[in-house]
Computed example of a mutant assay.
Amino acid sequence: MTIVDQNVEYRPLLMIIGRKVCTHEVPLDPAYQYVAYQPAFETAWAQLQYDLGVFDTLDKAKQTIHEMASKPMFKENFLFVCDQNGHLVGSAGLWPGHHYGMERLRIHYVAVSQAHQHHKIGSSMVSKLVMKYDATPGKYPLYLATQTNSYGAIAMYSHLGFTAYLGAYEGCTKKQSEANWTLATQILREKSASSF
């Protein structure tokens, strides 16, 4: 995920991807590697999320990762990417969401350090998680929540096969969802014209 652009209006968005739409995992750049979760990553993860504008405070980010890491499903559902020096530069996971009135897995907390963006780390992590989801039985498409001021992330998700969800969901009517995506499309056009 690119940094949240605080100069762009925030509106919530959902995106979905059908099963078997993403047919291959984007290879991770050889300068990076997937590593198993280590408790020492909590501080680096919190800092990464905070730096990208996902959390208002570093303490909230630390509390969130600490709570998630205490759940049994965390280690098997979150990815961590380090550079050649062992520094955490990216993370993403499959985590329960409740946007549809029931618990469903979604792509969550996708983040790549600003200094390491544009190396397809985000695409690699998300494609790997989509493939993992597709390998598990279920009838629902995978989804993710994003926002209009994360237009770089929206472009990446679209490239991988995610599409706009225009229906109603918890806290958002169908009309609001459509209006939010109209704004998002306008922002993406403007930003691509200026080569964001």
Score class of each variant (00 low, 15 high):
I65W: 09
I65V: 13
H66K: 15
H66L: 10
E67R: 14
A69F: 05
S70A: 15
P72G: 10
P72E: 08
P72V: 10
M73S: 14
M73V: 11
F74Y: 15
F74T: 11
F74P: 07
F74A: 11
F74R: 10
K75F: 08
E76K: 14
E76Y: 06
N77I: 00
N77V: 01
F78W: 10
L79Y: 10
F80A: 03
F80H: 03
F80E: 00
F80D: 00
F80K: 00
V81H: 02
V81A: 01
V81C: 02
V81M: 01
C82Y: 02
C82G: 01
Q84M: 09
Q84H: 14
Q84T: 09
Q84R: 14
Q84W: 03
N85W: 04
G86A: 03
G86K: 02
H87A: 13
H87T: 11
H87F: 07
H87G: 09
H87C: 08
L88I: 05
L88A: 10
L88S: 04
V89F: 01
V89L: 02
V89T: 02
G90A: 14
G90P: 06
G90K: 03
G90D: 05
G90N: 10
S91K: 03
S91R: 04
A92D: 08
G93K: 01
G93C: 12
G93H: 04
L94Y: 02
L94W: 06
L94A: 05
W95L: 07
W95N: 12
P96H: 12
P96E: 05
P96Q: 09
P96R: 04
G97L: 03
H98A: 11
H98L: 07
H98F: 11
H98G: 09
H99Y: 15
H99Q: 15
H99C: 11
H99A: 11
H99M: 08
Y100M: 15
Y100V: 01
E103P: 00
E103M: 05
R104E: 08
R104Y: 00
R104S: 04
R104W: 01
R104D: 08
L105D: 04
R106Q: 11
R106N: 06
R106W: 01
I107Y: 04
I107G: 00
I107R: 02
I107E: 00
V110P: 12
